[in-house]
Design a protein around this nucleic acid. Structure first.
Lengths: 196, 196
DNA sequence: CTATGAAACTATAATCACTATAGTTTCAGA
DNA sequence: TCTGAAACTATAGTGATTATAGTTTCATAG
């Protein structure tokens, strides 16, 4: 395998890119429901069949990267955390710099994020992508805490962390919301002890 | 408004029931994807347009009750809990007797549950229905703990509790799985304190 | 009792996402 | 250079869902 892609893969990537760009532009202009896949295919100058060959999950997947990078970030954030730092702290810091939790984004990415947050179908699909990483995240957490990755507690924690973007993403102060949720996961629900 | 429904509403309920029954029967026989809405409409002896008039959310909604009962159970479980019992304990007990967490069900309900658990589209829709109750549950929780229903911590707890059926429902020992998750929510994630 | 309007229902046609088929072009590698 | 796989195309189909326009059925005000 070559270090640089052959012409073939380059063209494939080009087409994929053209589809992403066309979709993002049209969605931004007319809203997600105001655009048909046919329009997107036209705009990218490919056939509808080709469009679906590139995005097996359908219309929503058009503006998302195909790669599984989403999961990798969190897993390496856990592995490479400074010694003494808790797993949850590492996850908290990692999430804080990404997605809906930072304003420190180039304008095109911000437009994209706003589109996703403002479109239920896209929010849902985004969640699906995040949750697809549950297994990997659970394994990483388990490795650091000497538990079994199949332990329901581990799986639940992974799931709950991955749900945070959808849960806190729409809040006005999304960063504060995220921190509140992490506090809950770290310390549990504070219930006054029963008095008799 | 009368105590007994007029003929009109009775017929409407009849039609809805016929649709539910037809859908459940056909889904059980041929699988969710093996049945078209046209077949269901035929079986229930109504037109396709009528079918959709009864289930605004589409095919998946056919076998679910339209009512908002789901939420009510949990909310009253919180309100009417024995004094001294924690909110989470009340929720835990309430969930334990329902859905995927008990084998103590009549065979028809069990068949229905297995169908839902075994069909991704139906699982997803079921989750959507549960989550629709997040607001109500958050209010109930807030009322019992002197917090604001808009508090992110309260909303997150409500959401996480409502996710439990989907999260633990597919486990072999779903009841044990559910308990493990409640323990996590009550006590938080046990992380050894950093050593320096 | 009856007229009237709303609600439930119908058939029909359309839209749209998505899939299947079969054939064409284009690149990679033997 | 030959060959096969991969990417692409047009075309036609399936299936869910909506829109339209008209019909039947019930509730109820007069």
């Amino acid at each position: 395998m070559a270090t640089t892609m052959g012409r073939r893969e380059r063209k494939k990537a080009q087409t994929r890119r053209a589809l992403s760009d066309a979709a993002l532009r049209l969605f931004s202009e007319h809203g997600y429901d105001g655009v048909t896949v046919a329009q997107i295919a036209d705009e990218a100058d490919v056939s509808i069949a080709t469009l679906f060959a590139h995005v097996p999950d359908g219309k929503e997947a058009l503006i998302f990267d195909d790669g599984a990078d989403r999961q990798v970030w969190l897993v390496t954030a856990i592995r490479d955390r400074p010694s003494g730092q808790s797993v949850l702290e590492a996850l908290r810091r990692c999430l804080a710099g990404r997605g809906p939790f930072t304003e420190d984004l180039p304008p095109d990415l911000r437009r994209k994020r706003d589109l996703i947050v403002g479109t239920p179908a896209l929010r849902e699909y985004s969640r699906k992508l995040w949750i697809a990483g549950e297994g990997a995240l659970a394994e990483a957490i388990a490795a650091e805490s000497g538990r079994d990755p199949v332990d329901m507690t581990v799986r639940a924690l992974a799931r709950y962390v991955l749900e945070i973007p959808e849960l806190a993403g729409t809040e006005a102060d999304s960063l504060a919301a995220m921190n509140a949720i992490f506090d809950l996961l770290e310390s549990g629900w504070p219930e006054p002890p029963m008095d008799a």
